[in-house]
């Protein structure tokens, strides 16, 4: 199951910066899909909704609003609304991109071009890191630097190392949970596909139903993981924003 990765390295002031070309391509494709889906869904918006697209997008907006307000006061959390909708839409689309098909070039490295960008740990950890940095930024902004630093030494001073490590754990768990779910799902999809294509008539018949079932389940996982990612981001944000924590 080894697949080659198309890479391209540029030298930035003597530092080699490596691009995973397939991941980069998939990220950009995801962004374009998300943007155009929402762009065209909301061309005809009115106070009195005229079509299904607007209703669906509004349902998503309200759903995310509910997620935020279940964690913090809307006065505090309102500014994360757009970020949270964009995040959940981006992660969901990124997750489901790998479900319908995968493109593997028939060269000797089996270069993998089309996949979920979230099946790449660099992507999920970067997203998680971005969110954690965001929580720290808004934590300092809301509590002030003094209280923010002090919060590491509460309730006991010797808790500080644990609390410090916890911040990195947040980042790791947030990113690796998403990556693990999507990557494992894609591996299983590839295994089922190879069962169908190489397992003869029995493999084809035996693998078809599980493949369909797993695709459906992966759709579910994609939605759940997108939800969990945004939900946990909001939980971490609320921890940092509230004074009593």
């Amino acid at each position: 199951m080894e697949h080659g990765t198309p890479t391209y390295t540029i030298d930035l002031f003597g530092l080699p910066v490596m691009f995973d070309l397939s991941t980069s391509l998939m990220i950009i494709i995801t962004c374009l899909i998300v943007f155009f889906v929402f762009f065209f869904a909301t061309r005809k918006i009115a106070v009195r909704p005229t079509g299904k697209p607007q209703v669906l997008v509004e349902a998503l907006v309200n759903f995310v609003k509910g997620m935020i307000s279940s964690n913090m006061a809307w006065k505090q959390g309102g500014k994360f609304h757009f970020m949270a909708i964009t995040l959940i839409a981006f992660i969901f689309v990124a997750n489901i991109l790998g479900i319908p098909f995968t493109i593997i070039l028939p060269d000797e490295e089996h270069t993998l071009w089309w996949k979920s960008p979230t099946a790449d740990p660099t992507v999920t950890l970067t997203l998680a890191g971005l969110m954690i940095v965001l929580t720290h930024y808004y934590g300092v902004k809301a509590q002030g630097m003094g209280n923010y630093v002090k919060s590491y030494f509460q309730p006991m001073w010797f808790m500080a190392p644990i609390k410090f490590i916890e911040e990195f754990t947040y980042n790791l768990t947030l990113g690796l949970r998403l990556y693990g779910n999507i990557y494992a799902g894609e591996i299983l999809l590839l295994l089922l596909v190879s069962l169908i294509t190489t397992g003869g008539i029995i493999g084809a018949v035996g693998g078809f139903i599980p493949l369909m079932a797993w695709q459906g389940f992966k759709l579910f996982i994609s939605a759940i993981q997108a939800f969990i990612f945004v939900m946990l981001t909001m939980v971490y944000l609320s921890h940092k924003l509230s004074d009593d924590h």
Binding site: I10, M18, F35, F82, P117, T126
Partner: peptide, 25 residues
């Protein structure tokens, strides 16, 4: 580690956030 992918993600996600915020949200 594909630092470039991270950069691509950061830039494109922030651009996406800005574009969606301006045009849609």
């Amino acid at each position: 580690v594909a630092i470039g992918s991270s950069l691509v993600l950061l830039v494109s996600f922030l651009v996406l956030l800005g574009a969606l915020s301006y045009f849609v949200w």
